[in-house]
Design a protein around this nucleic acid. Structure first.
Length: 808
RNA sequence: GCUGGCGUAGUCCAACGGCAGAGACAACUCCCCUAAGAGGAGUUCAGUGCGGGUUCGAAUCCCGCCGCCAGCACCA
C-alpha cells in the first residue's frame, strides 16, 4: 500500500550541500585524531598533480574512494584520509614559458582551485595534514634521503644513455616521450650519453618481485613483474682469436644451445668494437657505429625493421665447439641489456635466424623437438627438446642442459649461472627548474661533495629565467650555482639538476601522519599508529613507475633504519580511466569534460553517485552523462521517502524487512569490494520497494537506506538525518548490521526442468530438504504430463533453486 | 608480433555452473495539470561476438576463430 502523497519541501542540493560543507569544516568533522578508542585505518588515495584543469576524471578518482573511506569510518574505524598535491613538475614550467607566470604562482593558484573542488565534492579529507611537495619543508627531506642513500651507496653518479630532446635541449623523463617524440615540441627524441644521478633500485629487484602478504591486483603484480624482467641463464665468455687475452662476455637464457652458437654479435656501443675490428673492416664498422648512434631510439629498436650489421673481421672461439666464429656488430643487440653482446644461435632464436639468413651464416640445429637430427631448419626452433650435435651433452633434455652447460662453463672457468634483470637503476636527474635541487656541490679538488645536513634544504631560487632552452635553468642563476666546497672551502659549483618528481611521491604517505614535523621526514611516534598504509587507490597508469618507486623507497628507508616494515601499502585497488569519445582527456586536445555544470544542475551528491553507478570502477568509462538523470531521480525518491510520514504504525512486513536486510548485506559486501555500481543499484531497488511499503517496516527501512547511502551521498543524507531528528552527524553513526535470518527469503520459486526444459515453477518455503523438494517437483501435474509415464533416470536438486529431471 | 583483459536489449551495465535482468538511460503509452524536480505508472527491447567441447544444465568452465581495449615491443 503506497503512502498518500504529502506536500514536501523541494530537494535543493545547492543550498544543502553548501550548508553542510561549511558545517563540517566548522565542526572539524573530518579532522582525524591520532588516538581514539577505534582502530586506526590509513586510507590513502594518490594525490593529484595540480594541473589546473579539473575534469570528471578527478571526480572518478576521488569520489568513490571517499565513499569507501566514509564507509570504513561508519564501520567503526578511525580513518586517516588525507590529501595533498604532487606540486612539482614540468607543466608548471610550461605555463611559465607560455604565459609568463611563475611556476610557484601558477601552482598555488591551481591548488587553491582544486581544494575548492575537493570541498564541493563533499570529500571527508583531513586538510590539517595536507602535504605539498614543492615547499622547502617537504623537499628538504628529498634531499635528506638523497644524502642518506648516497652514504649507503644507493645513490650514485653514472653515465647513461638518456632521452634527449634536441630542440628543447634537455633530457626528458620516459613518460615525457610519446612514441619517440617530445611531448612538448613533438621533436624526435634521441639517446644521449650523460652523467646523471641514479637510485640503485636494481639492488632490490628480487625483493620487489615478492608480493607475499600484499593484497594487490593481479594485473599490477604482473606489470611490475614484467617490468623488472628477471631472466635466469648463464654468463659466459668466449675468447677473441689472436687478441691479447680479450674475451667477449655475454648473457644467455639458453646455455643449452651453445653448440649452435655460430657467430657473435656486439652492440654498436660495445667497448670491444673499437679494439677488435680488423683494419680492413675498420672504415665500414666505424660508419655503421656512427649511423647507429645517430638513429632515433624509436626507429632503432623497432622490431619490424630489417636486421642490419657489419662484420668486424675478428673471430671468437666457441669454447664448447672449439670453432672459430665471426664477430659482427649489429644494432639489434642492445648495449643496455645484459653485457651488450650475445652468442648468436640462429637455429633457435628468431632474431639470430633472420640475421644469419641475411648474411649467409651457418644455421645449426642443436635442440630437436623429437630427438632426431634434421638436415636443415626452415625456421628457428624456439622450444625445448633434446640436445643434438652437442658433444657430450647430446641426448640431454634441453631443460636439464641449461644448468649442465652453465656448470660446465663454471668448471672450465669461462662462465657461471647468472640472473639478469630488465629493470634499470632509477635515473633521477632532470635538467629542469621546478623540482628538488640535488644537494651536491661540485668541487675541482674534492669532486662531488654532499651538502652537509645542517645546510638543508638547498632552496630552489625564486628568480629564474625559464625558457625551455639551453639545459638546466638553475645553471644560469649565479647566486645559486656559485658556492664554496663544504670540504675544502674553495669556490665550487652546485649541481644544477633537480630530482624527478617521482622522488617526491615515493614517500609522501609518510609525511601525512605529521606534515609539520621539522626534525625528521616522518614523525615516528605517530607513524607507528598508522603505518603501513592499509588501503591505497589510484590510477592503473601508475602501476609501474610510482608504485614501484614507492616500494623501493620504503625498502631503502627500512635499510637505513628509518622504517620498521617492508612494504608501504598492504592493499591496493585501482580505478579505470575516464575517456571522452574514446580519447584521453587533455587540455591540448581540448576535450576536457568539467564537472561544474553537473554540480550546478544536479548537485555533488548526484555526480558522486553517478560516478559510482556508471559501471565497475576498475573498468573506467567513456564519459557520457546521459544516465545522470537516473541517479538524480533516485535521490529525489530518497528525499521524498525521508520526509514522508509513513502512515500509522502497523504490523511488520516481513518481505520489506527481508529486502532491507538483504540490501544491507549487499551494499556492505559491494562497498568492501569497490563494486560501487551494484551497491547503488541495490539501494535503488530498496527505494523502489520502500515506496510501496508502509508502517513500521517502511520507516525503519527508510532510516536504514539513508544510513547506507551516507558514504555515497553525504550531503542529502546528513540533511535527512537531522530533519528526521537524528542526533549529531549521520557520518558518525554506526553502519547498519543485518540479520541473516531476516535477510533470508522465506519463500522461493523452484524451477523444475525436464531434460533441460523448464516445465514448472513451484513456490515453496525456503530451506526445504532436497527429498521433499524432489517429491513436490515430481508431483507437479505439468511435470507428470511431460514425463507421461516415463521413469526419471536421474533427479538433481539444487537447494532453493532448481530441480533437474533427466529421463535418458 | 607477443601477453593480458573484455564482447549480454538501441545504450550503460547485472547475473555462487541453476528461470538471461538487479539498477539505470533512451523510446513508446497512459496519468498528474501546478504547489513541485528534467514528476508518476506502465510497456517495448537481448538468448549472451562466431564455431566446437565438457555437463542433467554454460553468459559463466575448456579449445579455436573474429572484434575491441590495454601493456610490452629485437630483453639474448
Amino acid at each position: 500500500m503506497a503512502v498518500a502523497k504529502q506536500r514536501i519541501e523541494k530537494y535543493e542540493p545547492a543550498s544543502i550541500e553548501a550548508k553542510w560543507q561549511e558545517e563540517w569544516v566548522r565542526s572539524g568533522l573530518h579532522d582525524t585524531p591520532d588516538d581514539s578508542d577505534r582502530p586506526n585505518f590509513y586510507f590513502l588515495t594518490m594525490f593529484p598533480y595540480p594541473s589546473g584543469d579539473i575534469h570528471v576524471g578527478h571526480w572518478y578518482a576521488f569520489a568513490p574512494p571517499d565513499a569507501a573511506a566514509r564507509f570504513m569510518r561508519m564501520r567503526g574505524h578511525n580513518v586517516l584520509f588525507p590529501m595533498g598535491f604532487d606540486a612539482f613538475g614540468i607543466n608548471a614550467e610550461n605555463a611559465a614559458i607560455d604565459r609568463k607566470i611563475h611556476p610557484a604562482v601558477w601552482t598555488e593558484k591551481n591548488m587553491a582551485h582544486m581544494r575548492e573542488q575537493f570541498r564541493r565534492m563533499g570529500t571527508a579529507i583531513d586538510w590539517r595534514r595536507e602535504v605539498i611537495t614543492c615547499y622547502p619543508e617537504y623537499y628538504r627531506w628529498n634531499q635528506w634521503m638523497f644524502l642518506k642513500l648516497y652514504e649507503k651507496g644507493l645513490a650514485y653518479r653514472g653515465e647513461a644513455a638518456v632521452n634527449w630532446c634536441p630542440r628543447d635541449e634537455t633530457v626528458l623523463a620516459n613518460e615525457q616521450v610519446i612514441n619517440g617524440h617530445c611531448e612538448r615540441c613533438d621533436t624526435l627524441v634521441v639517446k644521449r650519453q650523460m652523467t646523471q644521478w641514479f637510485y640503485k633500485i636494481t639492488n632490490y629487484a628480487d625483493e620487489l618481485l615478492k608480493f607475499e602478504g600484499l593484497d594487490w591486483p593481479e594485473r599490477v603484480r604482473v606489470l611490475q613483474t614484467n617490468w623488472i624482467g628477471r631472466s635466469e641463464g648463464a654468463e659466459i665468455a668466449f675468447p677473441v682469436e689472436g687478441s691479447s687475452g680479450e674475451e667477449i662476455r655475454f648473457f644467455t637464457t639458453r646455455p643449452d644451445t651453445i653448440y649452435g652458437a655460430t657467430f657473435m654479435v656486439l652492440a654498436p656501443e660495445h667497448p670491444l668494437v673499437a679494439t677488435i675490428t680488423t683494419s680492413a673492416k675498420r672504415a665500414e664498422v666505424d660508419r655503421y657505429v656512427e649511423h647507429a648512434r645517430n638513429m632515433a631510439e624509436i626507429e632503432r629498436t623497432s622490431a619490424e625493421r630489417e636486421k642490419t650489421g657489419v662484420d668486424t673481421g675478428a673471430f671468437a672461439r666457441n669454447v664448447f665447439t672449439g670453432e672459430r666464429i665471426p664477430i659482427y656488430v649489429a644494432d639489434y643487440v642492445l648495449s643496455t641489456y645484459g653485457t651488450g653482446a650475445i652468442m648468436a644461435v640462429p637455429g633457435h632464436d628468431e632474431r639470430d635466424f633472420a640475421f644469419a639468413k641475411k648474411y649467409a651464416l651457418e644455421i645449426r640445429e642443436v635442440v630437436s623437438p623429437d630427438g632426431a637430427e634434421h638436415a636443415r631448419l626452415d625456421e628457428p626452433y624456439i622450444g625445448e627438446g633434446v640436445m643434438v650435435r652437442s658433444g657430450p651433452f647430446t641426448g640431454t633434455r634441453s631443460e636439464v642442459g641449461k644448468q649442465a652447460v652453465a656448470e660446465e662453463a663454471r668448471k672450465r672457468g669461462v662462465g657461471k649461472p647468472s640472473v639478469i634483470y630488465r629493470l634499470r637503476d632509477w635515473l633521477i636527474s632532470r635538467q629542469r627548474y621546478w623540482g628538488t635541487p640535488i644537494p651536491i656541490v661540485h668541487c675541482e679538488t674534492d669532486g662531488a661533495v654532499p651538502v652537509p645536513y645542517d645546510q638543508l634544504p638547498v632552496e630552489l631560487p625564486r628568480d629564474v629565467e625559464i625558457t625551455g632552452r639551453g639545459g638546466s635553468p638553475l645553471a644560469r642563476v649565479a647566486s645559486f650555482v656559485n658556492t664554496t666546497c663544504p670540504k675544502c672551502g674553495k669556490p665550487a659549483r652546485r649541481d644544477t639538476d633537480t630530482m624527478d618528481t617521482f622522488v617526491d611521491s615515493s614517500w609522501y604517505m609518510y609525511r601525512y601522519v605529521d606534515p609539520k614535523i621539522d626534525t625528521a621526514f616522518m614523525n615516528k611516534t605517530v607513524g607507528r599508529k598508522w603505518l603501513p598504509v592499509q588501503q591505497y587507490t589510484g590510477g592503473v597508469e601508475h602501476a609501474i613507475l610510482h608504485l614501484l618507486y614507492m616500494r623501493f623507497m620504503t625498502k631503502a628507508l627500512r635499510d637505513l633504519g628509518e622504517l620498521p616494515f617492508d612494504e608501504p601499502v598492504i592493499r591496493f585497488r585501482y580505478q579505470g580511466t575516464i575517456v571522452f569519445k574514446g580519447r584521453k582527456m587533455s587540455k591540448s586536445r581540448g576535450n576536457v569534460q568539467t564537472p561544474d555544470d553537473y554540480v550546478r544542475r544536479y548537485g555533488a551528491d548526484t555526480l558522486r553517485l553517478f560516478m559510482m553507478f556508471m559501471g565497475p570502477w576498475v573498468d573506467g568509462a567513456d564519459w557520457n552523462a546521459s544516465g545522470i538523470e537516473g541517479v538524480h531521480r533516485f535521490l529525489w525518491r530518497v528525499w521524498e521517502l525521508g520526509l514522508t510520514e509513513p502512515g500509522p504504525a502497523s504490523a511488520r512486513d516481513g518481505d520489506v524487512d527481508g529486502a532491507v536486510h538483504r540490501t544491507i548485506k549487499k551494499v556492505t559486501a559491494d562497498l568492501g569490494d569497490y563494486h560501487f555500481n551494484t551497491a547503488v543499484a541495490a539501494m535503488m531497488e530498496l527505494a523502489n520497494t520502500l515506496q510501496h511499503a508502509s508502517g513500521t517496516s517502511r520507516s525503519e527501512g527508510v532510516a536504514t537506506l539513508i544510513l547506507l547511502l551516507a558514504p555515497f551521498a553525504p550531503h542529502i543524507t546528513e540533511e535527512l538525518w537531522r530533519r528526521r531528528g537524528g542526533a549529531g552527524s549521520i557520518h558518525q553513526q554506526r553502519w547498519p548490521v543485518y540479520d541473516e535470518a531476516v535477510a533470508a527469503p522465506r519463500e522461493v520459486t523452484i524451477v523444475v526442468q525436464v531434460d533441460g526444459k523448464v516445465r514448472d515453477r513451484i513456490p515453496m518455503p525456503a530451506g526445504l530438504p532436497d527429498a521433499e523438494v524432489q517429491r513436490k517437483a515430481l508431483a507437479s501435474p505439468r511435470v507428470q504430463a511431460t514425463l507421461d509415464g516415463m521413469k526419471p533416470a536421474k533427479v538433481i536438486v539444487v537447494a532453493d533453486r532448481i530441480v533437474s529431471i533427466v529421463t535418458k
